[in-house]
């Protein structure tokens, strides 16, 4: 296993109270595997990703419980300096949502792509330059050598996301956290970025955590899917099983909410109600207030039920 997260609790200490953004998340990513972390906005996907890098909002964010192990090494207790020097950008890299704002507008892309390589002592001098060209070529930036001195505004959105990817993969990280890498892009460019991530994985064997709310993107890229709701993972399984036989009522509702081409349906099928507040969440199953299959037992914490090989869901209905 590249990454093993167990019972992770990340809290945000806000003025209104303690927000339990990540509340007991366990997940794992294997070598060359892509795990899709799926859920609606506010479900804790991004904070789970940021927790892996220990890049929580300064002052308010804190990992209060649980363990994060990268190749067996515990990260939650690692000193901050060691996180910056040996983990961030070196063994876990991140790609963020908006390629238009992810690059520094006043530095050349040559500088920005070489920055992680320089900081992690991967290469220097002429070797650094050729490495930068190599990585940029790998992410298919045309005539990369000539464009090292160019600035982000001289590239298209899709190209910028490729450059961000180049920054992330330069040090051949063990794990790539891609937070909505395609959300801000046109559909045709999305396909290219997905193909790029696949290619990167084939080339380097890196594990990928793909954070997305787009079930289509998740289906096309992931080996396994973890569905998050209100700070918890409600269902995990191989991608085919999740899409063919979703077991948790929330996953079912989520999949039913996708409109399909050619379907004659006058109204979009939304999930009634709203996700609970994570400052004072309901005890028991957090989806219960919106769940069509709600039972009395749902007021208690549901057990994690093993359904088949690698497919599990946290629901009383399945127990």
């Amino acid at each position: 296993m590249v990454l093993q997260v167990e019972n992770l609790h990340t809290h945000l200490h806000l003025k209104r109270g303690i927000l339990r953004a990540v509340d007991g998340v366990s997940l794992s990513v294997g070598e060359g595997e892509t795990l899709g972390l799926v859920g609606e906005s506010g479900s804790g996907k991004t904070l789970t990703g940021l927790s892996l890098l220990r890049l929580l909002p300064k002052g308010s964010g804190r990992i209060v419980e649980g363990s994060i192990r990268l190749d067996g090494q515990e990260l939650t207790t690692l000193p901050e300096a060691a996180m910056a020097q040996t983990i961030r950008g070196r063994r876990i890299a991140m790609i963020m949502q908006d390629p238009m704002t992810s690059l520094n507008p006043v530095f050349s892309i040559g500088d920005q792509v070489s920055n992680p390589l320089r900081n992690h002592n991967i290469a220097q001098g002429a070797a650094l330059r050729s490495k930068v060209v190599e990585v940029l070529t790998q992410v298919r930036i045309p005539s990369a050598e000539k464009r090292l001195g160019d600035y982000p505004h001289q590239f298209s959105g899709g190209q910028r996301q490729r450059i961000v990817a180049a920054m992330a993969i330069g040090c051949t990280p063990r794990l790539l956290v891609a937070d909505e890498p395609t959300t801000a892009l046109d559909v045709t460019i999305q396909v290219q970025i997905i193909a790029l991530l696949r290619q990167i994985q084939a080339d380097t064997g890196t594990g990928i955590i793909l954070i997305t709310h787009d079930l289509g993107v998740a289906a096309s890229l992931c080996h396994r899917i973890a569905v998050m709701y209100a700070g918890r993972i409600v269902e995990t399984g191989p991608v085919r099983r999740i899409y063919k036989s979703p077991s948790h009522p929330y996953t079912q509702a989520l999949l039913a909410a996708i409109p399909r081409l050619g379907e004659k349906r006058s109204r979009l099928q939304a999930i009634p109600g709203q996700p609970p507040s994570l400052i004072d969440p309901p005890t028991g199953c957090r989806f219960a207030p919106r769940c069509p299959a709600r039972m009395e037992k749902c007021a208690e914490q549901p057990p994690i039920v093993q359904l088949a090989d690698g497919h599990e869901a946290a629901c009383w209905k399945l127990a």
């Binding site: 890049l55 020097q85 983990i87 961030r88 520094n104 530095f107 900081n119 992690h120």
Partner: peptide, 21 residues
Amino acid sequence: SDHIRLSRALGTPERLIVWKY
């Protein structure tokens, strides 16, 4: 901004983030 967050996520030393980027 996002690009500073990305710099941090890629392990850029804080000194460089502040005084350079």
